[in-house]
Structures are given as structure tokens and as C-alpha cells.
């Protein structure tokens, strides 16, 4: 069967999901609250910063009604620190994502993970890359490049980070196994979208090569279970005879 699209999300779908993340804007005009499906947005009063979803922030930016303040981890200094730890501290794994805040008791399960935790607003941590780091970085550089102090340095660092981390995704196949897993904590959404087809293909291929061994093992297990069952039955028969 030919499927029109491969499993998983396409890059544009991932970036669409990323547009739900909150970013900080510095409004240039007064604006009342918008009532959106996801709840009302904060009213905008020019000198005061406010957190808005990325898509709305980009819209206001395009209409020159607001500036976007880049998240702290998108500063060149923070990015080079992360790149440094990516190559020296975690040569084989990804740098862990931002620490999650303790969940409020009323919303213990669902509220304590992105996108419900703002990881790209001005007060966010600058020591870790959030889940949507690549998308957020690229979208902001494309849509609000003039709000960065050094957009070219940020762009270069993002590209370096991407290279380093994609090399790690590819190196992961060394430890892949037909039934095993590979630990990918801290991986980003776009990186999953990019690596999914390859990693899935490798696991599939390994499974096909090992299919005979797997079949033998299953057969033996079934045999053992059957023999065990039969053994019990025989004993019962003996009891009946006595």
C-alpha cells in the first residue's frame, strides 16, 4: 500500500505546533485583549512586555505593532555555552532539556510539560534548549531578525548546534537493536521529524535480518509452554487413574 505521506510529522507541521509556544513581545501600540479559543490574551500597553503565542506575535511584528524579545537561550553567549557542553560534557547524548517547574497540585499531570510551560519567554532558563529550539530559532530569525542584536552569530551557532546534534542522531544507530531502544532525552521536535524515517528504517531492516532468530525463539517458547502444560495434564491423568 502506498501511503501519500510518511509516518510522523512533516517539518511544516512541527513548526505549526511550535507557533503555539509563548514568546515575549514589546508592544508599540495599545491593544485590548483578544478572546481566542485558548483563552484571552493579555491586554497590550506599550512599554510593558507581554507573553503571546508565537503566531500572534509574528502577526503583530509583521504589522509593526510589536517587537519580539528573543528568548534568553537564543543569545549568542548562551548558545555557545550550550554548544560547548554539547561537545564536551555530553559527547554521546543530547544536553538535557530545560528543568520542569514543580507542577501545581490542581493540574499535576497535564500542565507540567511544554507547551504549557513557557520555555521561550524572557524569563526562561538560558542553560538548556527547549523542545522546539530549532523551529523557534529559525522562525524568529526569519520573521523578526531585526530584533536580535547579532542575528548572524545566532544563525551560525544554531547551524553548528544542529550539525552536532544530527551527528549524534546518526551515531545512535551503532547501539540500535532489533528490539532495543536508543536514549534520546533532550532531542528536539524538528530533529525527530528529520531522523524518524532513517531510524525507523534501520530498526525495520535489523528486524527483518533477525526475523529467523526471533521466529526460532518464539517457537521454542511456545513449545516450552505447551510441554509444561502437557506435563501438568499428564499428572492429572495419573491422579485420575489412582
Amino acid at each position: 500500500m502506498a501511503h501519500p505521506s510518511p509516518p510522523g510529522l512533516t517539518p511544516s507541521e512541527v513548526s505549526f505546533l511550535c507557533e503555539m509556544e509563548l514568546v515575549t513581545v514589546i508592544p508599540r501600540q495599545k491593544q485590548d485583549a483578544y478572546t481566542l479559543l485558548g483563552g484571552p490574551t493579555p491586554p497590550l500597553t506599550p512599554p510593558l512586555r507581554a507573553n503571546l503565542p508565537l503566531w500572534l506575535a509574528l502577526l503583530l511584528k509583521r504589522q509593526k505593532r510589536a517587537n519580539i524579545a528573543p528568548p534568553p537561550w537564543l543569545a549568542p553567549a548562551a548558545l555557545s555555552t550550550i554548544l560547548e557542553s554539547e561537545t564536551t560534557e555530553y559527547p554521546a547524548a543530547f544536553t538535557p532539556g530545560p528543568a520542569l517547574p514543580p507542577a501545581p497540585p490542581s493540574l499535576r499531570d497535564e500542565a507540567a510539560s511544554p507547551p504549557f510551560v513557557p520555555t521561550s519567554v524572557v524569563g526562561a532558563a538560558d542553560t538548556a534548549l527547549p523542545y522546539h529550539w530549532l523551529e523557534m530559532g529559525e522562525i524568529l530569525l526569519a520573521g523578526a531578525g531585526d530584533d536580535f542584536e547579532e542575528p548572524d552569530a545566532v544563525r551560525r551557532l544554531l547551524r553548528d548546534l544542529r550539525e552536532v546534534r544530527m551527528a549524534k542522531v546518526r551515531a545512535g544507530v551503532e547501539v540500535l537493536d532489533a528490539g532495543g531502544g536508543v536514549k534520546m532525552n533532550g532531542v528536539g521536535g524538528m530533529e525527530i521529524a528529520e531522523g524518524r524515517a532513517f531510524i525507523g528504517g534501520v530498526v525495520d531492516g535489523l528486524r527483518k535480518i533477525g526475523a529467523s532468530k526471533e521466529a526460532v525463539r518464539r517457537e521454542r517458547e511456545r513449545e516450552e509452554r505447551r510441554v509444561g502444560y502437557r506435563g501438568q495434564e499428564d499428572e492429572e491423568d495419573m491422579d485420575d487413574l489412582q
Binding site: P6, T10, M190, A193, E194, A197, F198, G201
Partner: peptide, 9 residues
């Protein structure tokens, strides 16, 4: 498939 996905990004 690996090439397609990296091209898509």
C-alpha cells in the same frame, strides 16, 4: 527516506 527527510527540513 533519510535524504527525503533532510531535504524536507
Amino acid at each position: 527516506s533519510a535524504h527525503e527527510s533532510s531535504k524536507a527540513v
